[in-house]
Design a binder for these strands. Sequence first.
DNA 1: TACTTCCTTTGATATAGGTCAAAAAACGGG
DNA 2: CCCGTTTTTTGACCTATATCAAAGGAAGTA
Lengths: 187, 187
Amino acid sequence: MKLKDYLLSVEDFPEEELDQILSSFKQQVLKKNTIVAKAGLVCNTLYYMEKGLARSYYNNAEGKDITAWFFNEGNFMTSMESFFHKKNSAYHLELLEDSLLYAISKDDLDQLFLNFPLMERFGRKLVIKLLGDMMGKLNAIQFQTAKERYLFMINEYPDLYYRVPLGHIASYLGITQETLSRIRAKN
Amino acid sequence: MKLKDYLLSVEDFPEEELDQILSSFKQQVLKKNTIVAKAGLVCNTLYYMEKGLARSYYNNAEGKDITAWFFNEGNFMTSMESFFHKKNSAYHLELLEDSLLYAISKDDLDQLFLNFPLMERFGRKLVIKLLGDMMGKLNAIQFQTAKERYLFMINEYPDLYYRVPLGHIASYLGITQETLSRIRAKN
DNA sequence: TACTTCCTTTGATATAGGTCAAAAAACGGG
DNA sequence: CCCGTTTTTTGACCTATATCAAAGGAAGTA
């Protein structure tokens, strides 16, 4: 979904306002494997992913690569804690496919919030959506078995399953790659 | 913290606006064990907890009582998914102590959002805070051992530990009461 | 103070999922 | 199309935590 359509699907922005908002975003065409945000630095950019796929990940105490979240077409992407609170990011953001992104800086976004009450409302609704996604995952992780989580995952992101390495999905689900492989073998 | 002070700590509301906002909240003095929202119904109320303690919980497939979240002094409480999306609540909200609450209906809150841009901003920031809390817990649950989660918990909510039954804390942490008891015994 | 109910601890045993290791399969650049 | 690299599968074994059961403590009420 195009950014313009996404915005309009949430709030009924007047034409002129919409144009101003859209012009604050900068188009970026980037290759697979590009790191668009680095752990340890403040992530000052919010991305809309029009096409492509990405993940946030970090290396845990034992040095293992842990995928925290996936971002696919039609979603906003950033390192949330870092972006919202100007803290150093705990995560890297890495493109898993060639992607088409629209980027806006935090300063420009705040400017939009100041100028357009509808944008402020859009922002609130967007965060509520993120909160819902987060709660869904929290629930899945906390109270379901590895197999149930796997089923939850392929239900939520059916295509994603074929687009990313198994290991990323496993760590996202909080299980090992071996366990995920075995679960899959039994279906 | 009083509701008024909380509001002012986030946004610099003008006096008159603040009064109008505050008058949309209704004070409620309620006893321990009161259920302020029932699973299966839409939760149309947002509560500010000035004093007291509560939890959200549900009964899982095996009929076990699972605590999903705690709400203590100086926090907003509701069944989020239900409140934001008018869906039936998956959770009960139960007071764990005699409490002093300030309640506002979703309709009244939406009215405040329409009337006061600063309130809209407050709403966005509040949701961002909730999102941060949620991510902290998700992280703890997903990648830490039972013991680490326990330590995370007593760090985040030191007093709470002495105010609620062990079983509630255990299910909140995604472990059994017995395991939590054993962890505690070894410290 | 005793009775009832609720809460916490302790013990014995079972199991889901982790770890380590190596083979097999799939992928990608030249 | 081939070779090195990455990804996935399979096997053997281990550990953290669950489950089941029962005893001990604490707390509220009459």
